[in-house]
Design a binder for these strands. Structure first.
Lengths: 344, 344
DNA sequence: TTGTATGCGTTATCAC
DNA sequence: GTGATAACGCATACAA
């Protein structure tokens, strides 16, 4: 009952004493060893429950060199896509006995490095980087050096970014194909002047751009630079930006995020243009915003749950020394959710 | 350079050996003690950097009984409000040298208890519960017993829920006043049949209801039961629900969440009613949905950032043994963000 | 200013 | 089946 420790917490010695056994035996029943007589197991277990003994995770960690935690880094959790990803990751990980320590790194290179180092210093069992921002723009391979460096310590899993290296694993959505299909569909519905609105030059944004351009080329529509615009991922910013260009003419918008697409919707409303009559609009990520807007937004669902599930599944395999069985790179398909801002 | 440890990681003994000092000295420079000669400090530091030595957090934790982590529990991170809260909490905590271990508990009592126990077993320094769901409905005091139980181990901070007890601290928004003001404004703009749409019976939902009813009573408008409706926090659900009631007449909606309010907007659109002409609508939480909708939604901003900042500030004080200085209960005001779904 | 020795609470390897 | 005891890597009280 009473505990006389420094921290006032019951420890293995207390239990051992009360049960008249050695700490080794207590440890055995705690860890479910079968080399304990049913009799003593019962007695010890009883006392453990009664006194609410919980093994000290630090001591355990010290000995086993793991606390069964995985680090998750996102640029910001205050983003629907990231939040959903973290939700699923936490869910799948905790179902498998792993806890999450979360870090928000921001979008700057320094912040990312610092956050990764911090997480590493916590002796995590694996690291998950969520978001294509961690893959860099793809222009400079050294942008992702810090990831390979981290991978020397623990397996690293990148979600939605294609990073290669020893002990680093990637799971990406097929953004190129998705954007190709969206753009093609828009073209087939009769549009020719299609804007591409993006908020970054990340790996995934670049893939989307590729899909967009491929669709145009296939339809023999010239790719015009003034129709590719980089904007802030903020509804009113996009609207105002678009309103600014008086003599820019376009009849469709494909965006790399729903918020951007909604911005285009606001632009149309401000100009008195009908959607999808005058301009058709497609978003990306299939967030709740796609349903909140009016008209409701056609958007690409990139299967966050699937991506997260695959990632955790592979992560567990790697941790359990089955690394040879897991592919360093997995791609999952997206699908288009048709709503009312397009007429295909 | 080389390390010969079990885990292949450089430890304090390696550094000590290479620097020709004792581990005590290494420990001193690592922890910035001033009882080290400038000379040895430099030499040791050099080796530490060169070999990339990072103190083992488990060993440190074992001795100090802390790993400088705080547990954060949310019902689900896949909710704009929670996501933003966690964003700020993580930000403020990490700025102060604390890491977050995140757990999603769901909304069921069992899940909450389990999550709290799990976090507790990780020897966190403090626990933060985000969301009024943790405060129970207020009807049964024992709903929150597990929180007071947890508080016997670590200080517990509840965000947006009023829980009292030894070592438990609460920070709530003044939801009652906010909803009172919204409702009053709606009344002043000429409405009399005002619906109250809520998705839960949580502490904060109840406070909002109080505000709503207070405003009605003050204006001598009878509180009618059929105008208070409990719905799922899902846009289309709310729309369809409202469409169902053929002979329900109302000229305004105040909602406990933006998604619910947007559902009312969808209802109005479906019925061909003008907003705010025929019905005026007010949401809550001032999420991005409030801007995505059309018309854009008047909503209550409940100052998440402020709430989180206050919470972390008080948390740090409690951890630093200045508990007497911190109030067990803090209330922060909300403010109404007027947009285009109301005409006040 | 520096070093020695001990404790932190486990798990695991031996003996018995 | 059970019990000593040695790691695990650090911080720190105490000596020097």
């Amino acid at each position: 009952m009473a505990s006389y420790n420094k921290n006032g917490q019951v420890n293995i010695y207390d239990i051992a004493q009360m049960a008249n056994v050695s700490i080794a035996t207590v440890s055995r029943v705690v860890n479910g060893s079968d080399k304990v007589s049913e009799n003593t197991r019962k007695r010890v277990l009883e006392i453990i429950v009664k006194d609410g003994f919980t093994p000290n995770v630090f001591a355990r960690g010290l000995g086993l060199n793991t606390m069964h935690t995985v680090g998750i880094t996102v640029p910001t959790i205050s983003d629907m896509y990231m939040a959903r990803a973290v939700y699923y990751l936490e869910k799948f990980l905790s179902e498998n006995g792993y806890n999450c320590i979360l870090g928000c790194s921001g979008f700057e290179q320094d912040g990312k490095k610092a956050q990764v180092d911090l997480l590493l210093s916590k002796r995590i069992d694996a690291l998950i980087l969520v978001g294509s921002t961690y893959a860099g723009s793809g222009e400079n391979i050294h942008d992702t050096d810090y990831i390979r460096e981290a991978a020397k310590n623990v397996p690293v899993f990148v979600i939605n970014g294609d990073v290669t290296g020893e002990n680093v694993y990637a799971c990406v959505c097929d953004d190129k194909t998705a954007m190709y299909e969206v753009t093609s569909a828009v073209i087939k519905s009769g549009r020719k002047k299609i804007m591409f609105l993006s908020d970054s030059h990340s790996y995934s944004a670049n893939k989307k751009l590729e899909g967009y351009e491929t669709a145009l080329k296939e339809a023999k529509i010239p790719v015009r630079g003034e129709l590719k615009m980089y904007v802030q991922n903020e509804i009113h910013y996009v609207r105002d930006m678009l309103l600014q260009y008086k003599n820019l003419s376009f009849d469709a918008v494909v965006a790399t995020d729903d918020a951007i697409a909604v911005g285009a919707l606001k632009y149309a409303a401000a100009k008195g243009l009908s959607v999808p009559g005058d301009i058709s609009v497609a978003g990306y990520n299939n967030s709740s915003m796609a349903i909140a807007s009016e008209p409701e937004l056609t958007s690409v669902d990139n299967h966050v749950e699937q991506v997260c599930f695959d990632t955790v599944e592979r992560l567990l395999k790697v941790i359990h020394d089955e690394a040879k069985e897991v592919k360093p790179r997995v791609m999952v398909p997206c699908h288009i959710v048709k709503r009312n801002t397009t007429d295909f």
